[in-house]
Amino acid sequence: MKITGLISLIFIGGLLFYGALDFPPWGDPTSPASSHLSPYYIEHSIKDTSVPNVVTAVLADYRGYDTMFETIVIFTAGIVCIFLLRSFKEKAPESRMYRHIPTGIILRIEKGGKVPHESEYFEHIDSVWIPYDLVIRTTCRMIIPFIQVFALYVIAHGHHSPGGGFQGGVIMGASFVLFAIGFNLRSAIKQMSEKIVAFICALGVLIYAGTGVLCMFFKANYLDYSALAPLLRTDPVTARSHGILIVEIGVGMAVMAVMVVLYYNLSSAGKHDEGL
């Protein structure tokens, strides 16, 4: 079995390499992709959309459909992760660990035992105990605001520099993941509950699709942002630039929420109770 797998792998890999030999060389100006489509984008993107970063103009404006369905793919991935991993049935765990804060004593309470309330005296800690270091907590607390500001900058500045909704959303989601690692999963869920995350996820996709529908109300094609000019009180070219920003914000929200959902479900095996 292993031998046949190896042989078929080598055969298909060789076929792939043989096919790749026919590609035009990297950066060839006479290749079909660089001789028909790319010149149009490079020459017209600043005139059409007033966006200096051609990649953003192509992604969110000329190829708006592609990006919208990419966002929907990510949204679907988040939903599927919830359906596959989330266990809604509350099952009492084998044992729970509590720390009595004034004395530092750790209590292990077996199944069926009386569980103390979370208060200033008792603290629920993970059974796979991770010592919560003061240095880690303080560093996370100091660094997270800067990460979030940087994420917003990446989303908003995608017109002028590399970046955009996807990258900014991932960085924003990473800041919540860092919070969950530095503190614990329960305090992260307390900050941003599962329902809010799911709502933001759907809202992001809705903003993107809704912008397209809004364009249709102004008698233009779907996702033709220049039609939004009367609404945004600008000329059609600037309206396309603003439209790109609006959909990038939608993409960022959806991606951020999906990253957080994936982390919540993967790290706690769908129980949202004790996790990394």
């Binding site: 953003t56 590399p162 955009g164 996807f166 990258q167 991932v170 960085i171 989601g173 990473a174 993941v177």
Partner: peptide, 14 residues
């Protein structure tokens, strides 16, 4: 550069 940024944040990070 845009692809590199995505790869750094998604692939290497999250």
């Amino acid at each position: 550069v845009d692809v590199a940024f995505t790869e750094a944040s998604v692939g290497a990070g999250v």
